[in-house]
Design a protein around this nucleic acid. Structure first.
Lengths: 207, 207
DNA sequence: ACGCTAACGGAACACCCCGTCCGTATAACT
DNA sequence: AGTTATACGGACGGGGTGTTCCGTTAGCGT
């Protein structure tokens, strides 16, 4: 019902799978991707073999665990695109994504491809980036976003936001909001100040 | 001469020590702190035991390797304080430190205490932060920096800047400059836009 | 030149990681 | 209830890390 892949699985197997995914999501969110597979298995009250039977590799588990987060992210971008005021839509997206990153350390790492090599988010990632590019274009056309802003700047900002570490989740989201607010002021077209230096393309795997 | 600790050391030991430190500095700068001790020993053409005889633990090596970077950092803050225009001094410091972080990944991690637990930079770190607080105070008094800016915002910005990863060092410094320029525009007092949310204190080890 | 001690470095230790094998238990179907 | 295939989990292998032991080398003072 809830999961299209849940057919043809024995009941205990399906339960275990969901329990593993739930544990993986919360643990990755709280501690980042540097969590041992054994630890996730232990918290899910499952043997390591069971974990690996459901997800053949750690990368597979991470990919599956953050699939919904990824769609939520693109949904946010769509929401921003739907806003009648492009600049406001842009600001909302920046704030929302920063907050999402603050609430989920693992998502930050997964999105930035901090994991060994290009997860497989490639597809969703590129799609979201395409929409974000459109958002940037409109925000600039509307006169809200400074003209020398480029899509890669947005990626850079998100990467930077991911670097903020705090003690508690509450502090994390407050800091992210404050960070986003500061940045957004710097992105405004009016009183943009001296022109920015030439933009740089942040690193992208799969050269 | 150059090093006050170099007395009472045999010639080969002194050579090895300096070679190890040189290798550690360049390697940490290029690849961050996640470098195996064996790797540093190998590059310095030294056995692991020699490395550990000079630096009893990895933390000790890191601390010693970044001591001069730390003093360079405080020197930058002093330079900013010496500037007749507090706002310009503040901007210069932000730009310079961001650039330093871009050029040295290890320093970023060491400064942010990303290493296991509180290195020992505590003293220098607190001293530098004290001077930075004075810099912030003056920049606000001069009317250049927005009034709701706090010292912790500066720490947050530096932490964020450390999160930016690029492929080449050239890209890193370009990105850092661009990032700093964007942020500085958001920090300006004129046209500050809506007030920021309540500030948050970023995490500090040694509770 | 000699001897003594400081310094060296390869091998080994203890720990943790990801991923796998195989004998056992249990859900599902008759 | 009996049977069977599916799923389970403890134990294992291979590789990596920080750190230490100990037999050997080599600088330095005489």
């Amino acid at each position: 019902m809830t999961n299209p892949l849940s057919h043809s699985l024995r009941s205990d197997a399906r339960d275990n799978r969901e329990r593993i995914l739930a544990v993986a999501r919360t643990t990755f969110a709280a501690q980042g991707l540097d969590v041992a597979m054994r630890e996730i298995a232990r918290r899910a009250e499952v043997g390591p073999a069971t974990l690996y039977r459901h997800f053949p590799t750690k990368e597979a588990l991470v990919t599956e665990a953050f699939r919904e987060q990824m769609t939520a992210c693109t949904a946010v971008v769509d929401e921003g695109l739907a806003d009648p005021d492009p600049w406001r839509g842009f600001c909302l997206v920046v704030e929302a994504v920063c907050e999402m990153q603050a609430l989920d350390r693992g998502f930050t790492a997964a999105f930035a491809s901090a994991f060994p090599r290009a997860i497989d988010f490639a597809a969703d990632r590129e799609r979201a980036l395409g929409k974000a590019a459109e958002l940037v274009r409109r925000a600039k056309a509307a006169g809200g976003l400074r003209a020398d802003f480029v899509l890669d700047d947005l990626i850079m900002v998100l990467m930077a936001n991911g670097g903020i570490r705090t003690t508690s989740p509450d502090d994390a989201v407050t800091a992210a909001r404050r960070f986003a607010a500061l940045l957004i002021q710097g992105m405004r077209a009016d009183r943009a100040g001296p022109p920015l230096l030439p933009p740089v393309r942040p690193h992208r795997r799969r050269s």
